[in-house]
Amino acid sequence: MRFNCPCCGERGAEEFVYHGDAAATRPDANSPTAMADFIAYTYERTNAAGVHRELWYHAAGCHLWLVVARNVMNHQIISVARARDVALAQTAQATCGAQSNGGT
């Protein structure tokens, strides 16, 4: 497999370290449902047979964490993005969502 690292360009997968599913966000530890939330976050996986969004670390490269969308049926890479950008966008979206909810 080869990933198009947003910083380094196309590199072989052997430069990267896998972490796992990027679907879940870390729950709020102070929520009343924190225990259940953390159990689901840490242990449960959709593990779907199709496109999988997952975290990879460019360990032998720029040290960026990446969110890679990859088809686990045929190993084709659909997209590669910086994890930081994805996380910030998710936070922005969540904040945005909360605000608009607040408005209605």
């Binding site: 370290v17 972490h19 870390r26 975290l55 670390y57 360990a59 040290h63 960026l64 964490w65 910086r82 994890a83 930081r84 996380a87 910030l88 936070t91």
Partner: peptide, 18 residues
């Protein structure tokens, strides 16, 4: 050493990028 550094990067870039 390597594992922790990678973990810290994950925390910095993915969990708490702000």
């Amino acid at each position: 050493a390597v594992k922790v550094s990678q973990h810290m990067e994950l925390c910095q870039q993915w969990l708490w990028p702000e």
